[in-house]
């Protein structure tokens, strides 16, 4: 564990609390992509199956359980409690275009051709693109509530902080590098660049998040 990863994880944690706060206070999940949230549940379940056979630390296990539980809870809120505020007609990204390639990539690139290792790879690849339905929705509506942009920013910061974490680990752990995680992580962080540009130049200057027409 190093500071970059800890801050990254805390940022991830914060993003979930921001999302829950947004849904509870506005009593609405407007602007949130159900598809992205469903992909996150898939990611967490596929990756954290290792709770059953790999113990890293109490911190690690508690975080994993929290990420699974909170992501399922968010789906519940969207699908049941605040269902009328969820508009599937603008959440139109075709997730089969993400799932298919991720399945294929995980079958080719994995550290061992076993069920758990392929699922681990799959979760890494899927996480890297899981935000796309959300960004697509943003692009489509052209605007977002400020709180929703804070949620996305916290998620982006989490991913961005994993990059210095890997550099730090490479230096301090004698050249250790995880090619699958690093490649997917760079792609994932890259997807946030456009968003961050608008976030920093508009939202943090007190303006509304609006994309040019």
């Amino acid at each position: 564990m190093n500071l970059f990863r800890l801050l990254g994880d805390l940022s991830h944690l914060a993003s979930i609390f921001i999302l829950l706060h947004k849904i509870q206070t506005t009593r609405s999940c407007r602007g949130i992509s159900f598809k992205t949230q469903a992909l996150y549940v898939t990611v967490f379940v596929a990756r954290y199956l290792d709770l059953f056979y790999r113990y890293v630390s109490l911190y690690n296990s508690v975080m994993k359980l929290f990420f699974i539980a909170s992501s399922v809870y968010i789906l519940y809120l969207m699908k049941y409690k605040y269902r009328p505020t969820n508009d599937p007609s603008i959440d139109t990204f075709r997730i089969e275009y993400l799932l298919g390639p991720c399945v294929l990539l995980s079958l080719i690139f994995n550290y061992k051709f076993s069920v758990t290792e392929v699922l681990w790879s799959f979760s890494i690849f899927l996480e890297s693109v899981a935000i796309l339905p959300q960004l697509f929705m943003l692009q489509r509506t052209g605007e977002a509530e400020t709180i929703t942009t804070h949620y996305l920013a916290a998620l982006g910061v989490y991913r961005a902080l994993y990059i210095p974490n890997w550099i730090y680990r490479y230096i301090t752990e004698d050249g250790v590098v995880d090619p699958i995680a690093v490649t997917a992580g760079l792609v994932q962080t890259g997807l946030y660049i456009d968003f961050f540009y608008v976030y920093f130049t508009k939202v943090l200057q007190g303006q509304k998040f609006e994309l040019p027409a």
């Binding site: 990863r5 994880d9 991830h12 290792d50 790999r54 890293v56 690690n60 975080m63 994993k64 990420f67 550290y111 061992k112 290792e117 681990w120 890494i124 994993y162 974490n165 680990r169 752990e173 250790v176 590098v177 995880d178 699958i180 995680a181 690093v182």
Partner: peptide, 10 residues
Amino acid sequence: QSPGSAHDEL
């Protein structure tokens, strides 16, 4: 040690 150093990450 399991393959892939990121296995101990979240």
